[in-house]
Amino acid sequence: MITATTTLAAGYASVPPGHIATIVTSVEMVRPPSPRPERPVPPGLVLRPLADRNPDPYRSLYRTVGAEWLWFSRLALADDALAAILADEAVEILALRQANRTLGMLELDFRQPGSCELVFLGLTGDRIGTGLGGRLMNEALRRAWSRPIERFWLHTCTLDHPGALAFYRRFGFEPFATHVEVAPDPRLTGLLPRGCAPHVPLLG
């Protein structure tokens, strides 16, 4: 769960050099939505639990899917902290693959009783707009609501695809909170290559 440490006053605020700022929108649903239609499954497409849940294979999957959108939170975790998450049976991690190529990932966190967080849902850039995102979301909804939960939630931010928030709302999520996150730019700290996410200015 996101916890705000301060409340911003109205007006502009400077971002420290070498940092990035993003607006984070948290969304939720408190009952299963009506099913949405899916496109036919492309040949050879498989969505399977991550076979090796050690930090290095996980980070490889995470980078492949998320580098374009500056996903960095898992990369910044120490090995022992990340290993503890990956070893928890209440965390589901699935990789979407076709012909041995990674196309996307899905991560669900059931560690909070009565709740499920959609921690990550993403596709590689060349698969966005193909209908695979909807297939991943339908799978996330099935898995989440098959458990005894009362709430399914996630957060998205302005570093994500411009259509991300509208995508989540189409599936029945509604916004409930907004935060601003400021963090060191992962392209400057070495967590991600400097050429990632050219849509986000690199100021350092």
Rank of each mutant, 00 (worst) to 15 (best):
I23S: 12
Y12T: 13
V27R: 05
P32K: 09
A4C: 12
T6F: 06
V30S: 13
A13Q: 14
P40F: 04
T6M: 08
P33C: 06
Y12S: 11
A9S: 13
P35C: 10
V27W: 00
I23V: 14
P37L: 11
S34Y: 03
S14Y: 02
P32V: 04
V30W: 00
A21H: 01
Y12Q: 10
A9F: 00
H19F: 05
L8M: 11
R31A: 15
G11W: 05
A9D: 10
P37S: 08
V27K: 01
T7Y: 03
P17H: 07
S34M: 11
P32G: 05
V24D: 08
A10E: 07
P40D: 06
P37F: 07
T25A: 09
S34H: 12
G18S: 04
R36I: 03
V27T: 15
V24N: 08
V30Q: 13
T5A: 09
V27A: 15
L8C: 07
T3Y: 07
G11N: 09
A4Y: 09
R31W: 04
E38G: 03
A10V: 06
P37G: 09
T6E: 15
V15S: 06
Y12A: 14
T6K: 12
M29N: 09
T5S: 13
S26R: 13
L8E: 07
S34P: 04
T22A: 13
I20M: 06
V24I: 15
E28L: 11
P17L: 07
R31N: 04
P32L: 03
R31E: 15
R31P: 00
T5R: 10
P37A: 11
A21W: 05
T5C: 05
T25C: 09
